[in-house]
Design a binder for these strands. Structure first.
Lengths: 341, 341
DNA sequence: TTGTATGCGTTATCAC
DNA sequence: GTGATAACGCATACAA
């Protein structure tokens, strides 16, 4: 037996489809109390549920949004996802979670799939935003909010959650310099991502402020993942002179570095100070607990979804690109100490 | 400008909708090579993408499946999700990932939402499967595969991935007994879940095999989460006589126990041996690395999706409930040792 | 207050 | 090979 349709309900209640439709969406549309009860009874008995496809085919809205992230296994996204879902559920929206797996191609596939399913908006919380994604969405006028993306468009249903890394990085650098460090490395994310360079430059600026020249800071490329950190440690050890402090583009990389260091018998923080970025849950459970720069992850998720709601509801009005700024802050734990030498 | 429809393409190519539809789904349906190129050109120029809603409204298939899990933040699910997506993508299916947040109500909401979106099947990889969910899906004939669920129905488009905990638990118990332990605790998941009792009973049976009476093994209730493990440690310490070894229902709980123990100055494994279950990625990065029982997580995801494909394609044929068994195995690391006393 | 008719964007069943 | 035309399940303008 196939699922009952609105027609079946109408028959069972002895009314027409439109009447059923009215009690279904019944806001202000007056329908007689008696017939309403008839219809509700029929709905309950048949366990009727409206077909969301048919409905959104005609209303042009699906009460659903897409949420793209790079990797569910990356703990950074967990509070973000949670924050998004909090607001979404409150507002009656379903969220489709899509794992891009750090692949541009995969993300594009999801975006097309989401659009073909008429989602009302898309959240791109992936650290590896592709301009191509945004372009595709903008061209089709789909409300979109992206995390940490430099808008090169100034108009449309677009929003950006910008992260002010500078503040936290400043404090971290001050901390390291005060400890007496003077040879640094930055292990960046993939260098083709704009955000990778932004973090690196903020690091350089903060160091310059303390009269440390760019020449004293090496740059290595990681992949924002744990095993990337492990791997890159080998190359870090080949650096000469050996750096005493490393700033990783994210906590996962930092934890990978620590793990790799331990395997080689190095002691953290005595032989190497490590600073991460994100402050994922793991950061203070690791050993040693990770000194890091905290991003307000739950808030990022919440305000992104909030902003998306605004965009979706300000239907069509040609608005400028929305922007929100969230701040970072420094968290001192035990993966940093004065250099030994 | 709204998204172009099949009609727009037809006009642009100077043909009818039907022809466009043919090249779209073009299997072996003969369409003149010339007109085909005309149509493809128009499609490319308009960047036309078929509306998945309208399509599945008539085909009754959406090429999408729902994937319910308890919590994206629980690392156990990451390889499972990955495995599901591997097979799904291969087969051309999209997956909708839904976070039940360990709440029955939320899961039910998702299931209804998925059904109303005409998903072709549902995967319930949540550790807290509700019979109500399965009933709802079965009643509407939606192909479903559940993890670790005791079927009380014998027919329908249903599949079960059963986990053989016994083997791994046996080995773990043997390991502990050989070390000289004789006073045990089990920190279970929520006791209203059937799977919680199954693990507990398997533990008791394995101990009985070594002539350890049920009286010597205490039972505490956790919640399968890290902080639950931390919390329950307090109650563990109040036990008298103090147990020397604890078997946790999952790794998260075990890691929470270890974290709680460390806070109170206990040393693991000297003061307390801890065995987990799952073997999540974190397990061998923790300190000390966690002795645990490994579940083949990727395989669980892969075979679940594989089974779902089978169910979805064996359309309507009244088949018995499919069942697959995956095995557990013991992994010795460093959170277990001989008791001190 | 309720019913009828039309259309959303597809695929499917016919004719041609 | 190709083009009308009828569904699919629903919402909605309009008529009653």
């Amino acid at each position: 037996m196939p699922r009952p349709t609105i027609q079946d309900v109408a028959r069972a209640a002895g009314v027409s489809k439109s009447t059923v439709s009215r009690v279904l969406n019944g806001v202000e549309d007056y329908v007689d109390a008696n017939t309403r009860r008839q219809v509700e009874k029929a709905i309950a008995e048949l366990e009727y549920r409206p077909n969301a496809l048919a409905r959104s085919l005609i209303t042009k809205r699906s009460l659903a949004v897409g949420l793209l992230i790079s990797d569910v296994a990356n703990a950074f996204y967990h509070p973000v996802i949670h924050g998004v879902e909090q607001i979404a559920i409150e507002a009656g929206y379903d969220t489709f979670l899509c794992n891009t797996n750090y692949e541009v191609e995969r993300g594009l596939h999801f975006i097309r799939s989401l659009m073909s399913k008429n989602v009302d908006g898309v959240l791109i919380m992936s650290s590896s935003v592709s301009d191509e994604w945004i372009a595709e969405l903008a061209r089709h006028n789909v409300p979109t909010v992206a995390l940490d993306w430099k808008p090169n468009i100034s108009e449309g249903p677009l929003g950006v959650i910008a992260v002010d890394f500078a503040a936290g990085i400043q404090q971290a650098v001050e901390h390291l310099v005060n400890l007496g460090h003077c040879r640094f490395v930055h292990v960046a994310g993939p260098l083709n991502l704009p955000t990778s360079l932004l973090r690196y430059e903020a690091f350089l600026r903060a160091l310059a402020w303390h009269d440390i020249p760019a020449a004293d800071v090496a740059l290595l490329e990681g992949n924002l993942q744990f095993e990337g950190g492990q791997r890159v440690l080998t190359r870090l050890l080949e650096l000469s002179p050996r750096p005493t402090a490393v700033f990783a583009a994210n906590d996962l990389t930092a934890l990978g570095l620590i793990s790799g260091a331990r395997e080689r018998g190095l002691r953290i923080p005595d032989d190497l100070s490590v600073v991460g970025l994100d402050d994922i849950a793991l950061a203070d459970q690791s050993s040693p607990p990770l000194t890091t720069i905290r991003l307000p992850k739950l808030e990022i998720g919440r305000s992104a979804m909030q902003m998306l709601l605004t965009l979706m509801h300000s239907d069509g009005a040609a608005c400028p690109v929305h922007e929100a700024l969230v701040k970072s802050s420094f968290v001192e734990r035990q993966s940093t100490a004065a250099p030994r030498s």
